[in-house]
Write a protein that binds this DNA or RNA. Structure first.
Lengths: 214, 214
DNA sequence: TCAAGATTCACCCAACTGGGGTATTGAAAG
DNA sequence: CTTTCAATACCCCAGTTGGGTGAATCTTGA
């Protein structure tokens, strides 16, 4: 099985370098090398890659936008972001755009080939320094758990009902779904409110989401 | 410079294996190998590691709790989580607890040594499959920026009221806070529901949180 | 100037919600 | 064997919510 790779990189030297690395490696083949991400749809349809090596910094259509586009319209294609910078905003944007991996340009050819194989197999290779920033961002944006030592002890049934509430289903409908009466659902809900120290469905679902109770 | 490593691993064979790997590698030394994380404070103070190799699954005091404790009280110590499982909850909990790296036990000794050096230097080595899950979790929990196509065009007042709803405040109270009548709040809320295509406060706040509308 | 939209307010009605009880069953724990 | 607790179910009541309709300002922009 040969992995087809499309390269997007504005620097001609690097582009040729990547192409050489791909074509010089058993199991890889470069099916296209482009200096920009304009006409991205045409280019992707033309060369039909399985993995895209994407430079973030490019003139015209930037790598993030292109990534977002490819993820949306060709969800099977894996995208490996390459950049010289490692600032939080770019990483954050790239991840949210749906990139599968993120490596610095200082990465060795051997590691690059490894990374290409890894994204192709569904993994997410990241330069450790990038990974470190991702974790920090993650901790920042998901402050749940932080030091929650099992604060709330919801029973199985209660968790089930709470998660249905998070889905926006109202109590009568929950009763149907759970094959129990409306009154029983209400009993559970009241207990949930007491345990979570809240007084309404909205508060409960917010707490459930924020503290990852469901 | 020699990196001091403390090992927490309940399986004796693996524990001895890790110890042998550390002591057999130039630049690393195992300063302590423990079968559980009980008395974690005493153990850490006793052996003063720079890097902790932590098994998640251990009898008694689990690896996550121990990680949280170490991060809190010895913030300079880097923690490398090791596990046989790669389920979302454990990964999420470990990251939120403050682990610096996360690798599977199937990782080769060479890669383990590499990972130890990387966490020591401030990086975050992750097995690609773990990294992949981290990215997915990240995308799930930070859907901001996702595609800021201004999906919903809420007015200023509507956003204000929606965010008060997310705080769990009920409509009469919102009216007071905004110095408008209860009926007006209700009019706004109804319009918000139409714009968001929802039919209840819970749904609205969930959507607001998930899509970062507030 | 006229249209569109934001913001404000009001009334009606049916349904749902929050809070307070009480009570039975079965399983697990001591 | 008794206690505890989750899960089930029912009652009452006041208050809130969802949905509909109508309407008056005010700003903004075509």
């Amino acid at each position: 099985m040969i992995i087809r790779i499309a390269i997007f990189e504005d620097n001609k030297l690097m582009r040729n370098g990547y192409e050489a690395i791909c074509n010089g490696t058993l199991g890889l083949v470069c099916c296209g090398a482009f200096a920009d991400a304009n006409d991205i749809d045409y280019k992707i349809r033309r060369v039909e890659p399985e993995v895209v090596l994407m430079d973030i910094e490019m003139p015209g259509n930037d790598g993030i936008t292109a990534t977002r586009y490819i993820v949306k319209h060709h969800p099977d294609i894996k995208i490996l972001i390459q950049t010289v910078f490692d600032d939080d905003d770019k990483i954050f944007a790239a991840i949210c755009a749906g990139a599968s991996g993120y490596i610095l340009k200082s990465t060795s050819p051997a590691r690059l080939v490894e990374a290409i194989n890894e994204v192709y197999l569904g993994g997410s290779p990241m330069t450790p320094s990038i990974a470190s920033r991702v974790l920090k961002l993650f901790q920042q944006y998901a402050p749940a758990f932080q030091d929650s030592d099992e604060k709330y002890t919801l029973s199985v049934r209660e968790k089930e009902i709470l998660s249905l509430m998070v889905e926006g289903i109202n109590l009568p409908a929950i009763a149907e779904k759970c094959f129990i009466t409306y009154e029983t659902v209400r009993t559970h809900v009241k207990r949930i409110y007491k345990k979570l120290h809240v007084a309404s469905a909205s508060e409960a679902v917010v707490k459930a989401l924020r503290e990852r109770l469901v």
